[in-house]
Structures are given as C-alpha cells and as structure tokens.
Simulated scan of single mutants.
Amino acid sequence: MAVGGFCRLPSGSVVVALNLPSPTVDGTGCVRVLVHAQNRARALTRLRNLGMRAVYLRGNASPPTPDEITAVLHHPDGLIWRTAPDDGVPALSQELWHPIRALRRRPAAPA
C-alpha cells in the first residue's frame, strides 16, 4: 500500500508524492516518488505508464513538502524519486533527487 498525498498549485496543476516499495530484488525500503501533472489522475497515469501498475492515491496522509514541490517543478520531466527515510520524516541530509529513468535502470542486487 502506497502512502502519499498531493498539493494543488496556484496554476491549477498538482504535485503528487507517493512512498512506494523499493524495486530492488529484496524489496526492502521505500522510495519517495514525486509527479507534477495537470491533475491527480494524470499523475497516476504517468506512473502506471512506466510500469507501476498498482499505484493508487487514497487520502492525503503524506503531502509533498515545499522543498519537494520546488524540486519536482525544477526538473524538466516533472517526475523524480529518492530513497524514503525509514521513519517517514524527511531529513535535511538526504540524498539528491534522481530522474525516474534512473529508478527504472537500477542495477539488481547481486544474488
């Protein structure tokens, strides 16, 4: 189950933030994915078109922070990710945001 939320911008578009299970082989940990789109349905469709079929947004439990909104608005694709913290609280010294293509090409953990 994905925890997430959204924020409507003054322009009418939205930023959707989702914490999803990590796509690594062992499946431990989570990634935080941010999507900028015209509405929530289009944001989720963008993720589903990338192969994340079981992505749903129920409620607004974990909306994007102002820093996250700034990060996704300044990315040309409007679709970024980074490893989510274990406790769910954003840390100031977290890793940088990555384009979504980097998540799809992540090397599998050695067997």
Rank of each mutant, 00 (worst) to 15 (best):
A102T: 12
P21A: 10
Q38R: 10
V25P: 00
L18S: 15
D77K: 03
R105T: 12
R53W: 05
V25R: 13
G27C: 03
P63S: 03
V35N: 00
E68C: 04
V72C: 06
N19I: 00
P21H: 11
W81G: 02
V72T: 04
G27H: 05
N19F: 08
R106F: 02
V14N: 01
C30Q: 13
R104I: 15
A54T: 09
N49P: 05
V72Q: 01
C30S: 12
D86I: 11
L92E: 03
D86H: 06
G59N: 13
S62V: 02
V55A: 04
R42Q: 10
H75K: 02
T83I: 11
N39P: 01
N39R: 13
Y56R: 08
V72I: 09
P21C: 05
W81M: 04
N39V: 13
A37H: 06
R105V: 09
I100F: 06
V89L: 06
R82Y: 01
W81H: 13
D77C: 08
A61K: 01
S22C: 12
A102Q: 12
A43Q: 07
I69D: 02
A108F: 08
H74R: 09
N60E: 09
D67I: 06
R105L: 14
N49H: 03
P90E: 12
L92D: 05
A102G: 08
A71L: 02
V25N: 10
L92W: 09
L57K: 11
R104M: 15
P90R: 10
H75L: 05
T83D: 13
V55H: 03
H74L: 14
P64S: 08
P99F: 01
S13Q: 11
R82M: 10
R48G: 04
P63Y: 07
A102H: 06
G27K: 08
R82S: 01
Q38H: 13
S62N: 12
V31K: 00
H75N: 14
R40T: 05
L18P: 12
H74Q: 13
D86S: 11
R48K: 08
R53I: 11
A109G: 07
Y56I: 01
G51S: 06
V72W: 07
L92M: 03
A43W: 08
R42L: 11
S93C: 06
A108W: 07
H75S: 09
I80S: 10
G51I: 06
L50W: 10
A37F: 02
L44S: 05
A109F: 11
R104A: 15
D26R: 02
H98W: 04
P66V: 06
L79P: 02
A54S: 11
G59Y: 13
A109R: 14
H75P: 00
L103H: 04
R48F: 01
L92K: 14
Y56Q: 08
R104K: 15
V16D: 00
R106V: 14
G59I: 12
P23A: 00
V16I: 10
S62D: 15
V72Y: 04
